[in-house]
Amino acid sequence: MDENKLEEEFKKIWDETPVSHSDTEKETSWEEFHSKVFPSKKKKFKVWRYAAAAAALIFAGIGAEMYFNRSPLQDTIYLASNVIENTTSKVQTVVLPDSSRVELNPNSKIKYANNFEDNRKIEIEGEGYFKVKKDKKHPFQVFCNETITKVLGTSFTVKGYPEKDVAVELYEGSVQMSVADQDKKWILKPGEKFTYGSKVAEVAEFNRFIDFENEKLSVVSIYLESNYGYKVRIPQEYGNQRITVRINKKEDLKMIVQLISEMYNLNFEVNEKLKQITFQ
């Protein structure tokens, strides 16, 4: 590589380096570096020596964000990461770059790389419900403490806080569970729950449905309010109507609302601003 090309490459790296200085300070430091590395055409032999030193300095300067912040998110280096934390008292929906969704519980956070669409790895601390977009070329992986949940397209919950057990509940699809430093794999089916704690992994069944057996429609509306955060208004004359239905606990609210409207031949209106559903 000739000196001009080398100079261009170093300037590009220098400008892209995410250091915590102003543009003026970064430009000043570049000029100082440039004057030492490329002082004149007569000192070409010093370029590579300075280049090695400069590379070491650049690596050290951005190590906290790029090179030394190694985590389960990556097999290769990534430039930066996104951290999303739910500091509210309500569940928040996060749409990931690949259109997958995470319903993030309070006091929980996720972290993923900027190249997420090609490197679908995500770390979670706390609890979240994942609805994963299918992509066979890029498997979706969730890291929680020592566990890894690997999926292609499915919906599941992951719960794991520091120094606490990890629990993964599968609602739809299929996932493969693994634990750091262990060769064994666990394949979950819908309705199965994987738990890991004190170096012990277990798989057991759990009830992913809620059943309403000849129950008042008003009771179902209360359930929707408490689990989805939407107020439900139904005509007074329908309040005592009876309903028998089985609902996936993580079913989309829209699907449930459409089901009720078809069963009772009702129209409905959703007010997102007020978080209210009105049947009429």
Rank of each mutant, 00 (worst) to 15 (best):
M1Q: 08
E3Y: 12
F10H: 02
F10L: 15
W14D: 13
E16C: 12
P18V: 14
S22Q: 02
D23N: 11
E27K: 13
F33H: 10
F33G: 12
H34P: 08
P39Q: 09
S40R: 01
K42G: 03
F45R: 10
K46R: 13
K46F: 12
W48Q: 07
R49V: 15
A51Y: 10
A53S: 12
A54I: 15
A55N: 15
A56M: 09
G63M: 06
N69R: 13
R70L: 12
R70A: 09
T76Y: 10
I77Q: 07
Y78P: 08
A80N: 13
N82P: 00
V83D: 04
I84R: 07
T87M: 00
K90Q: 04
K90C: 01
V95D: 02
V95G: 02
L96H: 03
P97M: 08
D98E: 06
D98T: 08
V102T: 07
E103G: 03
L104A: 11
K109A: 06
A113T: 15
N115D: 15
E117G: 07
R120Y: 12
I122L: 15
G128D: 07
Y129S: 06
K131V: 14
K133A: 14
H138F: 13
F140Q: 03
V142M: 08
V142S: 14
V142G: 10
C144F: 05
N145I: 04
E146G: 04
T147S: 04
T147D: 01
T149V: 15
S155D: 03
T157K: 03
K159W: 03
K159N: 10
K164F: 05
V168D: 01
L170D: 01
L170I: 11
G173L: 09
V175H: 13
V175K: 08
K184Y: 06
K185M: 08
E192R: 02
K193A: 08
G197I: 06
V203S: 01
F209R: 03
I210Y: 01
D211C: 02
D211N: 10
D211R: 00
E213Y: 11
N214M: 08
N214A: 10
L224W: 01
V232N: 02
E237N: 09
Q241D: 14
R242F: 06
V245A: 01
R246P: 11
R246E: 11
N248C: 11
N248E: 13
L253S: 00
K254M: 05
M255D: 13
M255Q: 06
M255L: 10
N265P: 05
F268E: 04
E269L: 13
V270N: 03
K273W: 08
T278K: 09
Q280E: 12
